[in-house]
Amino acid sequence: MSESFKHEKQIRLAVLTVSDTRTEETDLGGKLVRKLAEEKGLHVAAYGIVPDDAQRIRQAVEDWLQEEKVDVIVTTGGTGIAKRDVTLEAVSPLFEKQLDGFGELFRYVSFSEDVGTKALLSRAAAGVAGDKAIFVLPGSRGAVKLAMTRLVLPEIRHIVFELTKHHQPRE
């Protein structure tokens, strides 16, 4: 396998906003995920908005897990502690492997960058299902920017490479 694969393969992203109130026009967090991803050369292959309903969230993610055109799924919203925040409960059962370091680092960086102790309320998480990475992000623009620029985008090519390298012919 050539190391250049990490740098050449176009990563295909699906973005799911979880909100009872957002529309495509008012979904600032989802727009920011897409903008930051595209600026780094990623292709946004799918986008959707679903309400804070565990069954609808899980179904949307499961559908994208079956799509060949999707390498990474990023959800925004529904990661707090309110009763309606059920994104993690909907998505985490799909994880075959949990990437604990993502949530730990997200909370650490959040704590360090002006959020302070409120960072402990975040249930941001990541995991792997099949050959796809899933990132469960809070919905605020600040949290999305932090997660995408400091954690997701710097590692996404390596993550996809590791998850898909068994699909590539050996040299």
Results as ranks from 00 to 15, higher is better:
1 M>D: 06
1 M>V: 13
3 E>T: 03
4 S>P: 00
4 S>E: 13
6 K>L: 14
6 K>P: 00
7 H>D: 15
12 R>M: 07
12 R>T: 08
15 V>T: 12
15 V>K: 08
16 L>E: 07
19 S>K: 05
20 D>S: 10
21 T>N: 10
21 T>C: 03
21 T>A: 13
23 T>Y: 01
25 E>H: 02
25 E>Y: 01
25 E>V: 03
26 T>L: 00
27 D>M: 05
30 G>W: 00
31 K>S: 11
32 L>E: 15
33 V>N: 10
33 V>D: 07
36 L>T: 00
36 L>H: 04
37 A>S: 15
39 E>L: 13
40 K>F: 04
41 G>F: 06
41 G>D: 10
45 A>C: 06
47 Y>A: 13
51 P>N: 13
52 D>K: 11
52 D>S: 14
57 I>H: 06
60 A>W: 14
61 V>Q: 12
63 D>I: 08
64 W>S: 13
64 W>K: 13
65 L>Y: 04
68 E>A: 14
70 V>A: 10
70 V>D: 05
71 D>G: 04
71 D>E: 08
74 V>W: 00
74 V>E: 03
83 K>N: 02
86 V>S: 06
87 T>Y: 06
87 T>C: 09
88 L>P: 03
88 L>K: 13
89 E>I: 02
92 S>T: 08
96 E>M: 04
96 E>N: 03
98 Q>V: 15
99 L>Q: 05
102 F>A: 07
102 F>I: 06
104 E>M: 08
105 L>P: 02
105 L>W: 13
106 F>T: 01
108 Y>K: 14
109 V>K: 14
112 S>C: 09
114 D>I: 01
115 V>E: 06
116 G>K: 10
117 T>Y: 09
117 T>I: 14
117 T>Q: 11
124 A>I: 06
125 A>S: 15
125 A>L: 11
125 A>D: 11
128 V>K: 06
131 D>K: 15
132 K>F: 10
133 A>I: 02
133 A>K: 08
134 I>Q: 05
135 F>G: 08
136 V>M: 13
137 L>F: 03
137 L>H: 05
137 L>I: 05
139 G>T: 04
142 G>H: 03
143 A>V: 04
143 A>S: 14
144 V>T: 11
144 V>G: 05
145 K>F: 00
148 M>H: 07
148 M>A: 12
149 T>M: 09
150 R>N: 11
152 V>E: 03
153 L>P: 00
154 P>I: 10
155 E>I: 05
155 E>W: 02
156 I>M: 15
156 I>E: 04
157 R>W: 02
157 R>C: 05
159 I>R: 01
160 V>A: 14
161 F>D: 13
162 E>K: 14
162 E>G: 07
164 T>P: 00
164 T>M: 11
167 H>V: 03
170 R>S: 09
